[in-house]
Each structure stands twice: as structure tokens, then as C-alpha cells.
Design a protein around this nucleic acid. Structure first.
Lengths: 413, 413
DNA sequence: CACTATTTTTTTGAGGCTCGAAAAAAAGCC
DNA sequence: GGCTTTTTTTCGAGCCTCAAAAAAATAGTG
């Protein structure tokens, strides 16, 4: 908070700014960069010359049809794909996937694998993750030295420093310091990210028009998760990844949640909760895993006739609506992206959701709150992990110099 | 987000850093400032020489007994009280108070006044606020030219730019642009702040040990309000002052809230709600104003015997507990300060609150969550307004130069 | 095809800022 | 009074950004 700016930080920050402008814009010319950053042409010229010389950027002359204007044509700057690579690891229920991504953001290799996360012992789970990463790193096509960062994403709660998985619904194991494990094993800096946070990061890159400064990504799957971006920055808890929207209280003392408590939003809106309700089982019934196919069949049945299935989705919508209402009371309304298998059934959820939200203070202009849906969360999570790792490389590896101030007030996060 | 750092910004930021270090530490020496900011001695020396020359800081030689050490004695730097002044205006239910505060933070004049906020027409309410400010500014002891900022605080919702009151429980009027009104009237820059946010700001200055990076200030009064500090910064909504904890949903479709909706936390924990419940009135009964004396009497009776009064406080505690549980699910647990007349009855509220919070995901370590109480909110609100105004002067008036980049990529918020 | 207009990029010199090292200042200690 | 210790100031070096000028690269024009 109260640490001064050193003279050498200046160049570092402006380097980072230029790299970030190129990553965001694709192939901007120097003039464009000068415009978006507010720096002078001479500064941009000097910095980009450095970056090209170091192999971080390249001039991409032969680009577009340049809209034949008069004057010296602009030279597009692009990220050099070979400047570095990052590796993403996504661990979800019974499924592990890894991808290698070049510096320009293109996937260059990937591998997927099924495994029984729910019953695997600790050593084995860790071992499988390490093994799949090792296989990718041993790929002869890959220059292992260029892999600069590993970002791992997992469903569940991670710590606020993105180092460890604290708790996850996909395994009974807790407190696995995946980031440290991967770093020690491969000597490559790593992070352990929360799945919904990565969804939010990915949405921000995919559609910056709609998802820019303030928005919410909600995962409607077995459990209910949330990634929240406020004022352009990812929101996290003070100690954990935070944003446990699914465990806000919908009805005190109500239905049994997978977390062992009662009345959470998830206990009404998670897949298992919708299933339980549709099957007319007790609210105290132990949560069970429901496959995606079963959920799709359930949604189909609910669309077909007005029965307990439709009522189950209605109740899910109500829980989500009141939960969002409470959330909006705190942060004001914002666009929402519904992600996951039950997002495909959002037509069944939306009416009750809107009705509930309209009864809350946060829903004052509930008609204007817009929802978008995306049934497949895995690609989003991987994309988010990739962008997270790449922007880390941009800022901390290719624009260094602000080495954690040794003197005093460091902990800059 | 993506705006470069200009060369001249550097000095401006480091100037601001030095001023802020002095305001925080009281009478630090140049060496201490160098240590806390991480800047070199030469830089601190140069900047503080400028600031002294400009009359912003003063050397306070004849200070402490300096613990007679060897070596050249440290020279304490202090804020020059005459460098500027700020004015605070706090408007609460039937009460208006104004204070003039010097640059070092000392109150140099104040004035208070009763008025019927609930029934005053718009012109009159605005007129009274303007009039009391004018009287203070006309004080012959005050150099009007030195008044650099006005900070007004009000109970209710303000916009996120701190310009206008959007809605307030103390008046049926809405959307009063107080900041603009005061600026036009007096030609002094002004803001319109939310009362609970100012409470939080004040706590951060009063007790930085306890209230530093993450904490919550909750106003237990007629209504329920909240000020939230996360990662050291005041949290606000995306469009309004946000943090409307009192209007999170406790029981969907439940008791009637003053906001016209049902089941809000406030409808169980606001003074009127506790009163309604203790008097065994219907949950649909229209909220009424209850005086502080009546509330104290109610609390006394609740302590005396186990009757409907005690039950009313229990229900308030339950609502607050589940609300906090939901909040903690989002941001993780943090220290809480309970402020306002019902904070004096926190002994009656706490047991049920802790019981409720323990049933939520956010309350996993509920024993370790600590509560502090402060029955009187008005001094806190004034203090917060004063510090807000003073730090604005510190940063924007005495460390300028970063004038809203004219060129292009502005909208820096 | 030479020449002009236009736009982008690079070069150059000036001015500022911070830093480290050395010097100066201001005490206590013997 | 001289010596030690600690704080503060001074000074030159090294960077960084900026504005202005120069260079580069193309389209239009007769």
C-alpha cells in the first residue's frame, strides 16, 4: 500500500503495458499502442524495439489488406509464439486434462485422461497429475526450457495466493499444495486456481464487450460455483478463493447440502438437489452424483410436462434468484453468465429466478439484468488458466525489474 | 487499466506517498519515511524539502524526549495544520452537524442542529444544509480560502462516484445531488459519502492494528447498514455505495422491511423490527421509528427476564448470523465492528448470532470471529468524512500533476 | 515516372527523477 | 576538544520519457 515507485519500476511497468496492449489487441501498430496507453510515440518505439530484439514481439508485416490508406503503412506488432509456452492442467470430476499453449495463445498439444477422483488415495491423485504433466513436457516437439508457467484449475476452494487446493467436491482429500508440488517436481513456477475464477477470466478475454468491468460467472453443475469480476479485477476472498455463492444461505435450516450444512443455495440448485427434488426424495437425502446425460433427460422431461421435474427446476430458480438478490444487494446488479450442464436448462430456471430476484432489493431493475448461457465449462476453465499463465509471463517474466522490494513493505501479492 | 505511467507521474506519486506516510505515522523522521516507503534517503530529502517549502509539512523539532540516542537527532516531520482545512457535514435522522477540521486533523469549529428530516420538503432540506455550511464558512476565524474540500455523510444509498444521495431512510426524498449542490454554492469540491463506509474509514484510522486490510463495520440502528474494507480498500458497489447488508434476504417472503420488500435481514434486526417483535406485533406491521431511549429500555427489560423482548433480540441475532454467514461465504470471515444503539445490546444478540453463523459455510471457524462494539455512530461518521476529505487533499491537491490524461485512454475511474 | 501529400516510425537532444556515495550536520561520549 | 554515531543534504551518474525533427514508406497526380 505505502511503497514508493522506484525509477526503474517505470520502464518495467510501461513494458508490461505494451505487452498487454499487444495481447489484448492482436496486431496493433505502434501508433495504436501509443494511443491506448497514452505514452508517447518515442517511448513506444523504444520499448517495442527492445521487445523485438529480445524475441518477445515480432513485426507481422504481411497482415491485413491494410485498407489501402495514404502514408506509410502501419506495421503490426504481434506476440512471438516461440517466446515462451505455458501449461494448463484442469482437474475435474473423474477427468484430467493438460494442454501446452504457445506464447501467442495457441494450443500446441493436449492430452486427456479419465480417473476416479472420488476414490483415489492422495499419492495416486498427485501422482497422476504429475505423470501427465511429465509426459507432455517430454514431448520431443516441445522445448522444455520455454515452458515458463503452469496453471492448474480445480473445482473447489483454493487459497487466496493460488497455491493449494483446500477443499474440493471431486475428492475427499483436502489441503493439497498442488502449486508447490508441481514447482518442486518440474522447477517451473505454478499456480492452483479456482475453476469458476478461471471461467470468469476466460469470459473477459472471449467477450470483452459484454464481460469487462463487472460481471458474474455462475457454474450450474453438480455444485454451484461463482467467479466474480468487480471493477475489472477478479474478486477473491481474503483467505480463500472466495465467492462461494453456492453456500450462501437460502433457507436457514433447510435442505441438506453436500457441504454438510443446511439451506445453502446449492442444496436447492445443484444437480443433485434438482434430481432429489424431481425424484420426490427427502430434502435430507444424502447428495448423489448425477450424470450429465441424466440431467439432460430430466430437463427434457420437465419441458414435456408440468410435474415434479418442472417444479424442481422452479425451486432451483427460486434459490438462485434469492441468492443473486442478496449478492446484488452487496455489489449492485451485473451481467451474469450461466455455465455448465444445467445452464442448458436455463429456460426452465429463468422464470422463477426472475420472479425471486424481483422480490429483492438487488433486483430493482430485474428486467434489465441479462443472462447468458454456456453449457460447457471445461473449455472455459482451460482458456482461463491459459490466459492467467500467459499474463503472468507477460508481467513477471518479460517485464521484470520490480523484484520484490527486499527492504520493507513488500508482500505485493 | 491500460494506461502507461508518465515520467511526471512518478514524482507526484512519491510526493503523495510521503504525505501519506506522515499522516499515518504522526511525526516520522525522514529516515523512518525512507524505511516505510522503500525510497532512498536522497529522494525523501528532496521531496520533503519541497513540501516544507510549500508549507504542507513542518519540522517539529521540539518534540519528544527523543530517547537520548547518540548521533544526529531525528527531526520529526508533521503536517502543517494551516496548510488547508476541510469541512464535514453529517446528516442523520432529525440531526445535522458540521465541523471544520484543520489539515492536521484537529476539529477547529463545529455546529449542530435539530431538524425534521422526515417531513421537510426538498428545498428546505437542501437549504438548511447549505445554510449551516455557509455560517461555518463565514466564521471570521476561518480563512475561507483554505477550505479545500467538503465531505458530507448520510445514512442511505449514495452513488458509486460519491456525488449524490440516491435513497435514504431519513427522508422520503430521493436523488439529491448534494455534492454538486455544495460545489456550485461554495466553489469548493465536495463528495457525498455513505455513513457506514465512513464508519469503516474511521475505524481504519482509529485502530489500524485491528482494522487494517479486511474488516466489516455494521450499523445496528433503525436500519442495518454496512461498510466493508477488503484488501485495505473500501468496497463499493458497481453503481451505488453498495454493501447493502441489511437487504440481503434472510427469509424469502418473510417479515416486512422498511424498504417495502420482505424477508430482508433488516426486517428482523433493525430497531423497528426488534421493537415489533418484542411488542408481539405482526411481521406485516408497518415499520415505526423507535427512539434510542426506548431501545435501551427494551434491552434492559430483555436482560431482566426471559420474555418476548429477549426473543426479539434472539431473532435479530439469528438474522444477522445467517446474513454474516452468507457474506462470509463470499469474502471469508473478517473482524466485525458493531456500531449504533443496538450494539449496546450486543450481549443479547451475540449468542443467537454465533449459533446461526456456526450453521453456515462462512462460519467454519466461528469461535475465532471477533466482534467489537461501539454504541455511538455519529463521531465515527464525522471522523471518517474528515479523513476522507483530508486524504483527498493529500493526494489530489498537494500531489497533483496526474491531471486526467487528456489524450486518449482516460476513463481511469 | 517524378513529385507531392500523408502517415508512421525512428532519431536526437533536453529535462527530470531517483539512486548511491560522499560530505555535512548535529548530537553524545570520554 | 576530539572521537563516534546517526541523520540529513549534496552531487554526479544513469535512466526514462517527451517533443520536435528527421527518415521511411506509400498513395495520389499530372
Amino acid at each position: 500500500m505505502s511503497v514508493g515507485i522506484r525509477h526503474d519500476d517505470l520502464r518495467r511497468r510501461n513494458r508490461a503495458m505494451v505487452i498487454s496492449a499487444v495481447r489484448r489487441a492482436g496486431q496493433p501498430s505502434r501508433t495504436e499502442i501509443a494511443a491506448t496507453t497514452g505514452l508517447s510515440h518515442s517511448t513506444i518505439s523504444a520499448i517495442s524495439a527492445d521487445l523485438i530484439q529480445e524475441g518477445i514481439l515480432t513485426e507481422s508485416k504481411a497482415s491485413e489488406p491494410t485498407a489501402l490508406k495514404r502514408g506509410r503503412p502501419q506495421i503490426g506488432l504481434a506476440l512471438n509464439p516461440e517466446a515462451a509456452a505455458v501449461l494448463t492442467v484442469v482437474l475435474s470430476l473423474n477427468f484430467l486434462s493438460v494442454a501446452v499453449i504457445d506464447y501467442a495463445g495457441q494450443v500446441v498439444a493436449e492430452e486427456q485422461q479419465r480417473l476416479d477422483t472420488l476414490v483415489m488415495p492422495r499419492d495416486e491423485l498427485i501422482g497422476e497429475c504429475v505423470a501427465i504433466v511429465r509426459r507432455r513436457l517430454q514431448d520431443p516437439d516441445l522445448d522444455i526450457g520455454s515452458v515458463a508457467r503452469i496453471a492448474m484449475g480445480i473445482q473447489g476452494i483454493t487459497d487466496s495466493h493460488a497455491r493449494a487446493m483446500l477443499w474440493s467436491p471431486i475428492t475427499p482429500l483436502t489441503d493439497i499444495p498442488f502449486a508447490d508440488i508441481l514447482e518442486k517436481e518440474f522447477g517451473i513456477s505454478a499456480t492452483m486456481e479456482n475453476d469458476c475464477n478461471m471461467m470468469a477470466v476466460a469470459l473477459q478475454w472471449r467477450d470483452p464487450e459484454r464481460y469487462r468491468d463487472d460481471f458474474i460467472a455462475i457454474l450450474l453443475s453438480h455444485g454451484i460455483g461463482m467467479g466474480l469480476v468487480l471493477k475489472g479485477a477478479l474478486f477473491t476472498g481474503t483467505h480463500s478463493s472466495g465467492g462461494e455463492f453456492g453456500h450462501m444461505i437460502h433457507r436457514p435450516g433447510g435442505a441438506l447440502c453436500r457441504c454438510g450444512r443446511r439451506g445453502c443455495v446449492e442444496a436447492y440448485a445443484g444437480n443433485y438437489a434438482i434430481w432429489r427434488s424431481a425424484m420426490k426424495m427427502s430434502e435430507d437425502a444424502e447428495p448423489v452424483d448425477v450424470g450429465d446425460a441424466d440431467m439432460r433427460a430430466l430437463a427434457a422431461k420437465a419441458r414435456e410436462r408440468d410435474g415434479p421435474e418442472r417444479e424442481a427446476y422452479r425451486r432451483a430458480g427460486e434459490a438462485l434468484g434469492f441468492g443473486l438478490g442478496s449478492l446484488f444487494a452487496l455489489i449492485d446488479p451485473a451481467p451474469v453468465a450461466m455455465v455448465g450442464v444445467s445452464a442448458a436448462a436455463f429456460d426452465l430456471i429463468e422464470p422463477a429466478l426472475r420472479e425471486a430476484i424481483a422480490q429483492t432489493a438487488g433486483g430493482q431493475h430485474s428486467e434489465s439484468i441479462s443472462f447468458d448461457t454456456e453449457p460447457n465449462e471445461l473449455p472455459l476453465i482451460r482458456e482461463g488458466c491459459a490466459m492467467r499463465a500467459l499474463t503472468f509471463v507477460d508481467q513477471e517474466i518479460f517485464a521484470p525489474g520490480g523484484q520484490a522490494r527486499v527492504g520493507t513493505g513488500k508482500n505485493v501479492a
